[in-house]
Write a protein that binds this DNA or RNA. Structure first.
Lengths: 209, 209
DNA sequence: TCGCTTGGATACCGGCACTATCCAAAGGGG
DNA sequence: CCCCTTTGGATAGTGCCGGTATCCAAGCGA
């Protein structure tokens, strides 16, 4: 198919597709002549993946580029791809020497150790959690490990479910999509349901009717 | 205190503080002379709140502005403030006439109804969830209500815990902070723990050691 | 033949969250 | 009292990001 058809079917403009090619998110079509290239189903699927990661997952283009690079390297295992995705998602904070921050990060590391979770030292999610600790404490809402218990429980159950859902038998492409979907997209599902459940709880507690 | 001290204590530059005043996130100090204003503890607390919502919650300035406006209006109830926050957080999607989108949104509405949740029709989280449905289906990963069960359970438990934690006896300012913290900041806590739990699950399932 | 599409390159744009500058009018230490 | 710094307030500029727009030469196709 030509780029115009790719555009129609993906819902993205030709310009945007060219942009994604420039940025290395999408491989070039196979050149048929100097002014014609042929695109196939995989290009379309790739574009759908990019759209999902951008529009739903809200990932920056640069992060998607890193993920794509890992996807296209067949020597990258599923777990390594997972790590790449986590790292690309961020946040990327240069650890400040603020003692409060250091203490929070220490608490996070202790928590992970206590839970026995097998998580990289560099996982940005550690920083994200530490960041929330610092902010909570600065606002005068100290956080303790018992406060976290319900969150840990919920996170563990949901994560277990997600990783278990990754289809392992199919093609690598399919499996990889399955993994990304389970992590990036279902994170949004959890967030959305969390907000809805909060609103309901708020209505019951504070609502007037 | 003067603006320079406010700057030191909040960790924000004088420029940024002035910017927040211009944007209506922070009230002006009480003018002492043409070139001197007095700031107090509330200004500092406000700045800490703004920083938390910006840096940890990743809210845009415009969203924080809406929340602040609601905070400062004493006639706004806690539940209304909650709604304002949810709305400010977004996403703000102009519902397209795409039939897939309509169907997804219908599914979300049906789910909310079935759960008996008391949630506004306009809650952006409905759109967020619908958005994920569309993306998942386009990628060939259809989603069913049973898939959602673990998420619903987790979301409900955590939300219940959060709303229950909102301190109701203290001053309005304190209660309001408590509510915002419980929603915006703990959303990040949940996200971070979710990612960590996923990495652990991934390590166990796909890890090499 | 003639208009439309394409590949490829380059330039440009709008939104966002600051950041820099400037000015006149105070402080305030020596 | 002098002079250096700080401040309030306004206006302009910056850097990043994710696209858009434009242009050109080279096909394609009716």
């Amino acid at each position: 198919m030509q780029i115009s058809e790719l555009s129609d079917r993906s819902g993205l403009t030709v310009q945007t597709i060219k942009f994604y090619i420039r940025e290395g998110l999408l491989p070039r079509g196979s050149a048929v002549s100097a002014t014609r290239s042929e695109y196939d189903r995989r290009h379309l699927e790739r574009l759908r993946l990019i759209s999902a990661l951008r529009e739903v997952g809200d990932l920056p283009v640069a992060a998607i580029q890193q993920i794509i690079t890992a996807i296209e390297d067949d020597t990258v295992s599923l777990h390594e791809l997972f790590g790449t995705t986590q790292y690309a998602i961020g946040p990327h904070v240069a650890a400040p020497q603020d003692p409060n921050w250091r203490a929070a990060r220490e608490d996070v590391d202790a928590l992970v150790r206590e839970l026995g979770w097998n998580v990289t030292e560099r996982a940005p999610a550690r920083d994200l959690l530490a960041h929330t600790f610092v902010a909570l404490r600065r606002l005068g809402f100290p956080i303790t490990l018992t406060d976290l218990r319900p969150y840990v429980r919920a996170a563990r159950e949901v994560a277990e479910h997600e990783i278990g859902r990754v289809t392992d038998g199919a093609s690598r492409a399919r499996t990889v999509h399955s993994l990304l979907v389970s992590t990036v997209l279902y994170e949004q599902v959890l967030t959305a349901l969390h907000r809805l459940a909060q609103e309901d709880a708020s209505a019951r507690r504070f609502g007037t009717g």
